[in-house]
Design a protein around this nucleic acid. Sequence first.
DNA 1: GTAACCACTATACTTTTGTATAGCGCAAAT
DNA 2: ATTTGCGCTATACAAAAGTATAGTGGTTAC
Lengths: 130, 130
Amino acid sequence: MSRTSKLDQVKNCSASYVLALNDTLAVVSGKWKTPIIGALFFGKKRFKELEREIPGITARMLSKELKELEAIGMVIRTVYDTMPVSVEYELTRSGKSFSRVMDVMVEWGIEHRECVMNKQKVFAKNHANS
Amino acid sequence: MSRTSKLDQVKNCSASYVLALNDTLAVVSGKWKTPIIGALFFGKKRFKELEREIPGITARMLSKELKELEAIGMVIRTVYDTMPVSVEYELTRSGKSFSRVMDVMVEWGIEHRECVMNKQKVFAKNHANS
DNA sequence: GTAACCACTATACTTTTGTATAGCGCAAAT
DNA sequence: ATTTGCGCTATACAAAAGTATAGTGGTTAC
């Protein structure tokens, strides 16, 4: 295995690398996508269930975001022809695999918070007698 | 090792877990943070260097985003008292460690794209004679 | 028959985010 | 003396994202 050269890195950086990153960013963009995805990790849910489980969301936003998540292949919408119709939303395969990404994000978030706090502690210690 | 219970998951989900995730989301929020971070992965840079390397960014946005990245502990700003002053921006330790997160995001983005494309292929195949 | 549940949609509005353009104070180069 | 580069800031505006509120068309429960 040869290590990637600086040039390769730059090339990577300008092409498919950036596209892939932007695809992933689209999944977490906006205020409500992560709560929705989070709720769906526990299994399929109906519209009203999601609305109740996600505090503060409006029907308009939920509807909009679910459509977007469906469009980018994160969520499947299934309509059952009961009376009246019931609708269920669930994560696709790659939707489920997104937990990997969210796990790393949480992990980094925790570490980063510790890191920042330690710096504040050291700062406070060094300035305790002033 | 005991497996996490449903209840534990829910608890995790509602407390520090969410805070950590939101911290991480703050790092990638907005149009210009990832390009800036990406540029700084290659080493410290001056203001004008960043401006030149990131196509389309304005001085106002660069300045704003750098301040935010500094505020959340991603970037360090160093002023050298040359004449006139020169200023350098570089990633902090946790700023550098953010490459881990971006790598996973890119990885997932690539896989997800393949996944979506395959589905389209299968769809096209199944509807080839219609 | 009216009240409530479901799965939304429509309209109007506010807030946030990003863009465009100009300019400042300083110094070195031409 | 004027232009150029540096590291920004200020002002005004446009676009995107989000909120608030009401309403639709159907069904079942009381």
